[in-house]
Design a protein around this nucleic acid. Structure first.
Lengths: 224, 224
DNA sequence: CGTACCAAAATTGTTGACAATCCTGCGAGA
DNA sequence: TCTCGCAGGATTGTCAACAATTTTGGTACG
């Protein structure tokens, strides 16, 4: 999108392309020609090339030797798998977090819970969605599990496009809010087992919703 | 180690360096100078550079801007975290595998179990260790969870050095063999819950052993 | 009408030279 | 003796030109 006045560095390019993919500016399957992006972003071709390689490792871009890069298409099946893995790892984090959470952090999460309730009550889906993400990030950080955090971050990007549709489905907030509050309460009670289960139940529900959206999108689209 | 007569390509370099790190040929913390490796492996500096970037993403190499690459040192704490995450994800795979395993695959795993028992009985730790790895790979493949497989593969490399010491500890085989057989039996019974639990129990035991090795290695070593 | 082939264009891959950065060792001054 | 500063060397980072590969469009031939 924005072309900066100064020369863009490689990590700038990575961020820019990643954002465009996540925002849907670059659609799945679209070709990513190095020379084009280079001019588009005001960076050297080398930088763009390196960025595409990085994004390939993140799973957002697909590269075939001598045949260029395209935005990776993640099938519903793959999205489901990603959420299943995330469920397993996040549940681990939740259990660990419940064991080492401090009083201040509990207060912080409770506040977060109230904000979420308020956002849902006022129908502000955008804010609610952002608070969701924050809750995830917070309890993963609290768990102190760096490897798990890195693993989840890696997977996050790939599934975000599929989860995006979800947030704005009517009634979705009402389903997920109590689940999020349950996670918070389990952490506040310092109950690892309950926290583990609460996270799993939440992601199982997300999974159902993703599958449902998938099947409901079978008919309208007629594309390749 | 071996320098091939023909020009080595980038993926050759990745493989060569990875193998050397995993084999302990390159020790943790050792500097990896691009020009040296380039001459050593008979590849261009660009190829070596690219390989080091790839290995950085794998977590085997650590790179600091303008200051070069070194073999990443994975602390005991990190190894523990890695095994915890692996436990969560492999348990997921085991449960999924139990749901879709075929009769042929059950026979194959049972055979594997017998081979493992034989290897332990004859004290052939090397073979036993290799069969272990195969068992892991097989039930992950059977589960059909590509994302989980990729996630585990990523983590595998980093923890392998810590697990390596383990295999040759006296008595270790006797502890882990029944756990492996339990995994096989749970899969053969097509019991997802039991398979999940069997994998978790096995990796919990690995975890204990890693921690124990860690504490027993506190005294002999005199620091970096 | 379809197919095989070929050259031109477009695109990616690689290399080598140069620029930028960091580390080392030495010497001057307090 | 210790600290600071500064060249010199070593190492990494970047770029632009060149090579290799794939795609495309057209044409001749069956």
């Amino acid at each position: 999108m924005a072309v900066s006045p100064t020369q863009a560095t490689q990590s700038d390019v990575v961020d820019a392309i990643r954002r465009d993919i996540l925002d849907g500016e670059l659609v799945a399957g679209q070709r990513l020609v190095e020379a084009e992006l280079s001019e588009w972003l005001g960076a050297s071709r080398g930088a763009v090339r390196g960025a595409l390689i990085d994004l390939t490792h993140e799973g957002l871009v697909e590269r075939i030797a001598n045949r260029g890069a395209r935005v990776r298409v993640v099938s519903i099946e793959e999205a489901v798998e990603i959420i299943e893995v995330r469920a397993a790892v996040e549940a681990l984090c939740a259990a660990k977090a419940a064991e080492k959470i401090t009083d201040e952090e509990i207060a912080e999460l409770r506040q977060l819970g109230e904000d979420m309730s308020a956002a849902v009550a006022s129908g502000d889906v955008g804010t609610y969605s952002r608070l969701n993400t924050r809750l995830d990030e917070r309890f993963i950080a609290i768990s102190g599990q760096k490897v798990a955090a890195e693993t989840i971050a890696r997977l996050q990007g790939r599934s975000v496009r599929h989860q995006y549709r979800l947030a704005y489905r009517p009634g979705r907030s009402q389903i997920s809010l109590p689940q999020h509050l349950a996670i918070i309460e389990a952490l506040a009670r310092r109950d690892p087992t309950a926290a583990n289960r609460a996270v799993r139940e939440h992601l199982a529900s997300v999974l159902d919703a993703v599958r449902e959206v998938a099947s409901s999108r079978w008919e309208p689209s007629g594309g390749r």
